[in-house]
Design a protein around this nucleic acid. Sequence first.
DNA 1: TGACACCAGCGTACGCCGTACACCTTGGAG
DNA 2: CTCCAAGGTGTACGGCGTACGCTGGTGTCA
Lengths: 234, 234
Amino acid sequence: MAEQTEVRRTPLSRERVLRAAVALADEAGIDSLSMRNLAQDLGVVPMALYKHVANKDELVAGMIDVVIDEIDPPVADVDWKHAVRERILSARRVLQRHPWVSLAIESQQAPTPAILAYLDSMVGTFRGGGFSVDLAHHVMHAMGSRTLGFSQELFDAARNAGRTGATSPEPPAALPAQFADRFPNLAEIAVVASHDDASVVGRGCDDQFEFEFALDLLLDGIERLHQQGWTSTG
Amino acid sequence: MAEQTEVRRTPLSRERVLRAAVALADEAGIDSLSMRNLAQDLGVVPMALYKHVANKDELVAGMIDVVIDEIDPPVADVDWKHAVRERILSARRVLQRHPWVSLAIESQQAPTPAILAYLDSMVGTFRGGGFSVDLAHHVMHAMGSRTLGFSQELFDAARNAGRTGATSPEPPAALPAQFADRFPNLAEIAVVASHDDASVVGRGCDDQFEFEFALDLLLDGIERLHQQGWTSTG
DNA sequence: TGACACCAGCGTACGCCGTACACCTTGGAG
DNA sequence: CTCCAAGGTGTACGGCGTACGCTGGTGTCA
C-alpha cells in the first residue's frame, strides 16, 4: 500500500545464507548462531532459511565448506615437505580467522566434501613425493589433529557414505564409485587398508596402530631433541 | 498418606549426580545429557540437581574431572619415554570408554583442575627426565591434541584463573599462589615463558612458534621415515 | 490477455532446553 | 517444642530447532 518504494532486498540464496552465518559466527561466536539470529541478520523470518538449507546441521556443514575453501591450494613445484608445511600453515591462518571451525568440524558426524577434498589433496602431495600408500596413510593419521583437528574417523565416514539402507552388512571393499572419482587418493588408501587388515572386519584401519604410530613418531622426535641438548636458539 | 512404606531413596549428592551424568553420556551420548533426562534417571525433579551443581557447564566440568581421574598415575622407576608413553595410552583407553569427553573438554572455556593436575604431572615426568623448562614446555604443546585434545589454550586459562575483577591490566607475572602450589611444573613453565618473550604482552607463550615447533617435529620425523624407506614391518 | 503453477518467504505452533524463584518438607540442634 | 537450614518440588519464562500450511508475486503458456 503505502510503501511500494521500499527497496526490494536482494533475495536469499544458499550462498548468502552461508556467508551471513559465517560472519555471525566469526563476530558473535558459534553459540550465538541460531536460526533466529541468523534470520534476523538477513532481515528475514527464521523459517525462510529452510528454503535454502535443510536444517541447522546442514547449515554448519555448509559453513565449514565455505571456510575450508579459503585454504590456499598446494604450492606447485616444491618438494613435498615444503608443500605440506605451507599448506598447513595456510590452514592454520584460516582457522585463526574463524575460531569456531575446529569445534564445528569435530562436532559433525561426517567430514564435509571440502574437507575430504583437502585431505585428498594432502595425500596427493605425499604420494607425489614418493610416499607409499601405507606410509601416506599413517602419516595422515599422525598429522590429523595437528592439521585440522579431525580425520580420526575418516574411514568410518567413508563407509557411512556407502550405506543407504540400515542393515546391510556387506563387505567394506565396495566404496561408492563417486567417492573414488572425487577423492582418488583417499580411495586408494581405503582400499589398501581394508585389504591388508582383514582381521578387523568392517574397519578401514586399525586405530590403535595409528595412534601408537603417531605417538612414537613424536616421542622419537622428542627424544632426539633431548639427546641433542636442545635449546631455543637451535 | 498411603505409602509411607515406600523406600526412602538414597539422597542426592554431587558425587551421585556426576556419576549418573557420566553414565548417561556414556550410554546415550552427550546430546542426550539434559538436566531433565539426568534428573529423570535419578528419580528426581530437574531443579533438584541445582542444589548440587551450579549449572550445566559446571556439571560437565565435574564430569570431565571424574573421567580424567580414571587415568592411571605415572608408572614410577622407568625412563621418561616409557612413563609418558604408558600414561598417554592409559589416557587413550579412558577416552575410549567415554567418547564424549574430548569434545566436552574442547568445548569448555577453561581446563578443569583434574586436567591441570594431569598436565602438571606430565610436565613433571619430562622435567624428571632431565628436560629443560623450555623444552618441556614446547613438548607439551607438541603433544597437546594427541594426548588429550586440548592444552592449546592452557596459559590463557592460567591467566584467567588469576583475574577476579574485569578490568585489571596488571602484569601477567603474578600467578595466584594457589595455582603455583597445586601445579608447580605448570607454574614454572608459565613464569619462564612470560619472562623471556616480553615482546608479546600478556601472553604466556607464542602460539605460532609452538605450532611450527610441533609441525616441524612431525615433518622431520616423517622425512626420516621416508628416507629410510619405511615399510609396515619396520 | 488470462489462467495457472511454482516457489520464496511468512506465521503459527509444538516440544524441547536451561534455569530463576518461591514453596514445602524434613531432620537435627537448641 | 521450636526453629532453622538444607534438600527436593512446582511453576513459569525465554530461547531453541523446525513441522506445517498459507500467501503473494513471478514466469509460462494458451
